[in-house]
């Protein structure tokens, strides 16, 4: 709506219909053109263009020095990116799947997130760690994790997760321009799910701001990334049963847009939080804390959470049972509204 019009202030004349993965590609292309210090590091990102084709064609245009096929070494990718970042470059480090970020966890936890604080701002690491996440594409074991709370719990790094092609490009550009490290999660199940108009030039979507994507009065449904379409589908079904849902797309998982959450929940008095990661220790708990801190006396029903179960993400034969479905979300909407 209006919000979107404002966001694309620069060069909004021309648009093209892009999928999310094309929008991600376009964001990197835009920034490689715009800023010589931007470089991409990752496994199979060069000639192959990435396993999801997110970097397709970029090495051809920008060369092997700026779109770098690295050894198969996540800690090496992130660790060398730290050295590049403190010495004048803006690395975009691709982790091929979020389930493979764990070898780099030490580097992210003990260095990427801390360097700025421990040097009192003398050194900083403006880098982006991009990673496809989530289940739903019948991928092999360990390819389908949603590990955002490992990083939202980690002070010193921002965590961003777009749900649409427009936001994917705008948020990725914002992440690359951010002076601090950003973990950028891409819902792989949404990579090719929809096309929408995406401006051809450089624009950004503000990190730390969510968006009300559907206006409603009875209950606030909060989601992001691959769960946004699930939440919207459930909201639509609820509408048919006479329950009016307000749907929020958080977009940034740290820092949370507390004002957006508070304003909506104070209006509806009810909240359903949907996420794909496991419930225990999941981000839903932090969102509940935000509601508790800002809107406790407005609540008309206990807050509902619809999350992945507290089990490792299963082999794909059972992944549809693991992930929140519109049916489960609808059940929680009903529970909240009819409490």
């Amino acid at each position: 709506m209006n919000v979107k019009m404002e966001k694309q202030s620069e060069q909004k004349e021309t648009t093209q219909q892009l999928t999310m993965v094309q929008a991600v590609n376009d964001a990197m292309k835009t920034m490689l053109e715009h800023d010589d210090t931007t470089i991409i590091l990752g496994e199979d990102i060069g000639k192959n263009g990435g396993v999801f084709r997110a970097t397709e064609g970029l090495q051809e245009i920008f060369g092997e020095d700026r779109v770098v096929d690295t050894p198969l070494s996540e800690a090496g990718i992130v660790g060398t990116s730290v050295g590049l970042a403190v010495n004048g470059f803006k690395p975009i480090a691709e982790m091929q799947f979020m389930g493979f970020v764990y070898p780099a966890y030490d580097q992210i936890m003990t260095h990427v997130s801390r360097i700025r604080m421990k040097t009192m701002g003398h050194f900083s690491v403006p880098m982006v760690i991009r990673t496809p996440y989530g289940a739903g594409i019948r991928a092999p074991e360990v390819h389908s994790d949603s590990a955002e709370t490992l990083f939202t719990h980690m002070p010193g790094i921002k965590v961003v997760c777009p749900a649409t092609p427009y936001d994917a490009k705008g948020l990725l550009i914002a992440a690359i321009e951010d002076p601090d490290p950003v973990l950028f999660m891409e819902p792989m199940r949404s990579y090719r799910a929809q096309r929408e108009d995406v401006p051809t030039g450089k624009y950004s979507v503000e990190i730390g701001k969510g968006e009300k994507v559907q206006e409603g009065t009875d209950v606030t449904v909060i989601a992001w990334g691959a769960m946004l379409p699930v939440a919207k589908q459930a909201a639509k079904q609820a509408e048919q049963q006479g329950m009016s849902c307000e749907v929020l797309d958080l977009k940034t998982l740290y820092p949370l847009d507390r004002d957006l959450i508070a304003e909506s929940v104070q209006k509806t008095g009810r909240a359903v939080i949907v996420h794909e990661a496991h419930g225990t220790g999941g981000l839903g708990n932090d969102i509940m804390s935000v509601i508790n801190d800002t809107s406790f006396l407005y609540l008309r029903a206990p807050i509902e959470r619809v999350t992945g179960f507290d089990v490792p993400v299963p082999f794909f034969a059972l992944e549809e049972h693991y992930m929140p479905t519109p049916k489960r979300v609808l059940q929680s909407i009903e529970k909240a509204v009819h409490f």
Binding site: G79, S81, G83, V86, F89
Partner: peptide, 13 residues
């Protein structure tokens, strides 16, 4: 963990 950092900084140079 500082070894990859040194490699990255040298790479930047």
């Amino acid at each position: 963990t500082q070894i990859p950092h040194a490699v990255g900084a040298a790479w930047a140079e």
